[in-house]
Amino acid sequence: MSGETKVAALPSVHAVRHGSAWVPQGSQFSGLYLREIIKTFRNPFVIVITIAQPFMWLAFFGSSFGNVGNSAFFDQTVLHAPVGTTFIQFLLPGVLSTSMLSIGMFGSMSTIQDKRFGFMKRVLITPTSKATVYLTKTLGSATRGLVQIPVMLVAAWAFGVPFLGGVLDWLGFILGLTLLGVGFSAFFLAMTASSTDWQTPGVISNFITMPLMFASGALFPASNYPSWMQLIANYNPVGYASLLGRQVVVYGSFDWTYLGYLAVFAAAMLILGTAVASRYLKVE
């Protein structure tokens, strides 16, 4: 179709701009956040990877003590849990919490991809602030992280985990996981705000995941740890999310202090991260 056959006229209708916005950056925020969600569901591979890892932990690591059977000694001495608690039951909240550690990695990688493919330029040449870009990426990552929760709960049910605790307790635990996911995504994206290297997110992930997972009480109770590891566990948000979940899954009760701690963690990371990203987010 050459230019000669053109019949359509140049556009004559005008677009209308919102007047003064109720929420500054609100339109840009919802646009970019929805973009994250749309892209996630068009790349099911990311979801599969996100779910596969905690599932493996639950299935393989969780079955490691399968032959111990109903041992009162194991429950009381190793797990510090009531007699009759299975290891998978004990592990479920820890695995869900631990999996929130690395979800920021995919958000970092997609940010680096946007920089490399120039899309960041396309966004930042519009009246969109760097803080908005950062916050939508962070919430996008956290949302991706939450997708695994229903899958994991079904898996846990299949492994015979009894569902103690009421619906509100479970919703509280999921809120805790959300806060943990937001906090670590915020941390990850702030760390990689100025990076354009594909490998950086993987390196950071390796560096933080192992120590924070093992020194958290997510896999075994922290009271068995030596004192230096307990010290880390005392400040480790993964531990608080695990404890919050364990209260629900093992005891059917709920501890608001843990949730409060996670809220403080998420808020602090978001505030610090926004400050860092507004300054250091690289365009390309």
Partner: peptide, 14 residues
């Protein structure tokens, strides 16, 4: 997305 980033409301006709 461009309409969102530019805070446009009535943009579809254009």
């Amino acid at each position: 997305l461009q309409a969102k980033l530019q805070r446009l409301s009535g943009w579809t006709a254009r």
